[in-house]
Amino acid sequence: MFLVLSGIATGLSCARDYRALQLGPVSKVAPIDKLSVALVIVFGLLFLGERPSLPLLIGGGLIVAGAMVIALF
């Protein structure tokens, strides 16, 4: 069941990305798409009881910082 739900979510995500790329430039769409990884980290910490570790926090921070650099410059 989770595999099917994951497949559906992935398909919807790809369709959303394709539509976003039709509406805007890649330089603005790609950083927003990459923030989904950081959002999953936050959800895991808040709702799933994941324990924060230094590598997790550093990695999440680097993902957000990289997306901001790409989006702003």
Results as ranks from 00 to 15, higher is better:
Leu54Arg: 07
Val69Gln: 08
Arg19Gly: 00
Ile41Asp: 01
Ala67Arg: 02
Leu56Pro: 03
Leu62Lys: 12
Val69Asn: 06
Leu35Trp: 03
Lys28Phe: 08
Val29Glu: 04
Ala71Ser: 11
Ala38Met: 07
Leu45Gly: 13
Val37Met: 09
Gly44Val: 06
Phe73Gly: 14
Leu5Asp: 00
Phe2Cys: 05
Asp17Gln: 06
Leu21Tyr: 03
Arg16Asp: 04
Ser13Gln: 05
Leu39Asp: 03
Tyr18His: 09
Ala71Val: 03
Ile32Gln: 11
Leu21Cys: 07
Leu72Gly: 01
Ala9Ser: 13
Lys34Leu: 08
Glu50Asn: 15
Tyr18Cys: 00
Arg19Gln: 01
Ser36Ile: 00
Gly60Val: 07
Pro25Lys: 13
Gly7Asn: 03
Tyr18Trp: 10
Lys28Gly: 11
Gly61Val: 09
Asp33Ser: 06
Pro25Ser: 15
Val40Tyr: 10
Lys34Trp: 04
Ala65His: 11
Ala67Lys: 01
Gly7Ile: 00
Val42His: 11
Gly49Asp: 04
Asp33Arg: 00
Gly61Pro: 08
Leu62Cys: 15
Leu39Gly: 14
Ile70Leu: 11
Leu56Gly: 03
Ala9Arg: 06
Pro25Cys: 14
Val42Ile: 15
Ala9Ile: 05
Leu62Ser: 10
Phe73Leu: 12
Ala71Ile: 03
Thr10Ala: 13
Val40Pro: 07
Cys14Gly: 03
Gly61Ser: 13
Ile70Asn: 13
Arg51Asn: 04
Leu23Arg: 13
Gly59Ser: 09
Leu72Pro: 02
Gly61Lys: 13
Pro55Ala: 10
Asp33Thr: 07
Gly24Met: 04
Leu56Phe: 04
Ile8Ala: 14
Ala38Val: 02
Gly66Met: 02
Gly60His: 03
Ala30Ser: 07
Gln22Val: 01
Cys14Phe: 12
Pro52Leu: 08
Leu46Glu: 14
Val40Ser: 15
Leu57Gly: 15
Arg16Ser: 06
